[in-house]
Design a protein around this nucleic acid. Structure first.
Lengths: 336, 336
DNA sequence: GTGAAAGCGCTAACAC
DNA sequence: GTGTTAGCGCTTTCAC
């Protein structure tokens, strides 16, 4: 069996209280016994049980992170930054991929509660997430990433989707495009709607109208983007540029264009969103709206940890600003 | 405060033992009280504490997963499959990115021990990992992924690297290539060495010699692959094909070739390894040696869980077979 | 400075 | 069928 605090105490000839104190560096202990106890712990390869100490009222030093899909590069990068910042604060993280399935979401959230995580970060976007709402109302430390719940007081770290959409639209307009399509993940998704609103605004400022039939719905995969784009390319008034609400969709658009025999970027300009590693890998390298992924994870953890430690009462919504990253997938409009 | 089993017992007018029994569906309880207790639990929004139950001797239903970098698509896909299979068995997973840094590795492994995980899966490759060895010798349930420790009896799930290398080399030979370069992550990495050995064997079978100076070292990033390949392309006897030990390196090779003004795939055939999502996204789509990523994660979890549950004494090494996936990055050799 | 003892929330005999 | 009780390994008063 693993040695317990009793074994250490006995071997060191002191009480468990003393051992506990040297483990946690609390109370007053003489230098001599401290060193002695330490050496005994090493000899016994003693590892204090965090589960026992958690039971005693201290926190578990664990947070939960729910996201749609860990295998998706965007969320993998988010997860990595949450994991890193979490560890810097001494917290381990449970990661749960929900596939945006409400049932899984509920299952995982309650699992996390049973594991007594000190808090959670949710990057999942589920329409009308009752369970999450309930948790928030129960005052469980929670931080939202990548989307807000406007009617709830909850810590949130997000990017300004409206601005991002505007930047994308404006960029394409400045390049001279007039027939601009949009690829959305999902119209129920508020952050996507904001991106579109921003994009429309940019077009509007230039006196352009957005054709509703040029807005197509894909999802969070290349295939759906490809399929949606292919349909747009069948149109009479084929767009000369497209703004995709995430990099995966943008890659799908590029594929579709190639499949339709077009030359990129000349026949179709593409702007993505997220600036995942994929944007740099794809050919042509993708012009995209960069989300500060590292910073999002980091800030969310910081907010959460503050709340867990009770250092902060004020909830806040942190809005980070996206940036247009120019690469080669977008070029000036040329009359065909 | 969160309700405890006592609160439920009191509210239901039964003893905590009874409540415990209905929670775990053990012992004999009348239908009536079972339903009653259940309803009380719901009313109180009672969530049994897994930390308390873990302390009582049962397991934590938690496993640890260490890997080099969660943001790397290959490992993200591994992590997702481990997570999924873990949850199917009722286990949550702590993910730790070590960056292959021995210090982080030690820190995370001992953290996981303190959190009393029931077992761990390690996808980290650290030369001479003393700490991990010690854990294995202490009989902590552990499964290795993506690389073996030949001198230790430990559950392992891996791909046949030698065969994979052979398939890659053989494919290029069959395409008529004679001047074949290799891009390695790291020569200390045994699985890489096996891939190279396999590749050499394929060339040897065709009466070809492998030029040692055509073997270049990169790492686990596109940039290193690009840089290494660029140097190979400066050579007098410039290779007409390259086998890269992972997809990232392969993408780097493609980049380098483009940078050198070459046409792909005609001027340079590229074969990767892993078959991550990247292989399908890149242009030209990458011919690569596919690892059954899903299956690796799944099998590792299954082995680990069996060991945790004590259902199995025999340790085993599962060797999965890789497959050549043909895409467009490799073509027949044409005299320049 | 150090130790005795009372919990933390639960499980698992064992009684009844 | 249901309840009593002794831990699980630790933290934390509160004495000494």
């Amino acid at each position: 069996m693993k040695p317990t605090i009793y074994d250490v105490a006995q071997a060191a000839g002191v009480s468990i209280a003393t051992v506990s104190k040297v483990i946690n560096a609390t109370g007053r202990i003489s230098d001599k016994t401290r060193k002695h106890v330490h050496s005994v712990m090493e000899q016994l390869k003693y590892q204090p049980s965090m589960v026992a100490s958690a039971l005693t009222g201290k926190s578990t030093y664990t947070i939960g992170l729910t996201l749609p899909d860990l295998a998706n590069p965007f969320f993998a990068e988010i997860a990595r930054s949450v994991e890193d910042r979490g560890h810097e604060h001494g917290f381990s993280v449970f990661i749960c991929s929900t596939d945006n399935d409400p049932d899984k979401e509920v299952k995982y959230l309650s699992l996390l509660m049973q594991k007594r995580v000190d808090g959670m970060i949710s990057a999942t976007r589920i329409q009308n997430d009752h369970f999450l709402k309930k948790l928030i109302q129960q005052n469980i430390p929670i931080a939202l990433i990548t989307g807000e719940m406007p009617t709830l007081a909850v810590d949130t770290v997000m990017v300004d989707d409206y601005l991002g959409g505007f930047q994308a639209g404006n960029h394409l307009v400045e390049l001279g495009h007039r027939q601009i399509a949009i690829l959305v993940e999902d119209m129920d998704n508020m952050s996507n709607r904001e991106r579109i609103r921003g994009c429309k605004q940019a077009l509007g400022n230039a006196g352009l109208q957005v054709e509703e039939h040029l807005i197509a719905t894909g999802g969070f995969t290349v295939e759906t983007g490809q399929k949606a784009m292919l349909q747009l390319l069948q149109l009479e008034d084929r767009p000369s540029a497209v703004f995709a609400c995430n990099d995966l969709l943008a890659i799908g658009a590029i594929r579709a264009a190639r499949e339709a025999g077009m030359q990129l970027p000349n026949d179709l300009s593409v702007v993505g969103f997220d600036n995942t590693i994929l944007a740099t890998l794809i050919d042509p390298p993708l012009t995209t709206i960069a989300q500060p992924i590292q910073e999002i994870g980091r800030r969310a953890v910081d907010l959460l940890v503050q709340e867990i430690k009770g250092e902060k009462v004020l909830k806040q919504r942190v809005v980070l600003l996206p940036e247009l990253v120019l690469r080669n997938s977008s070029v000036s409009y040329k009359e065909q």
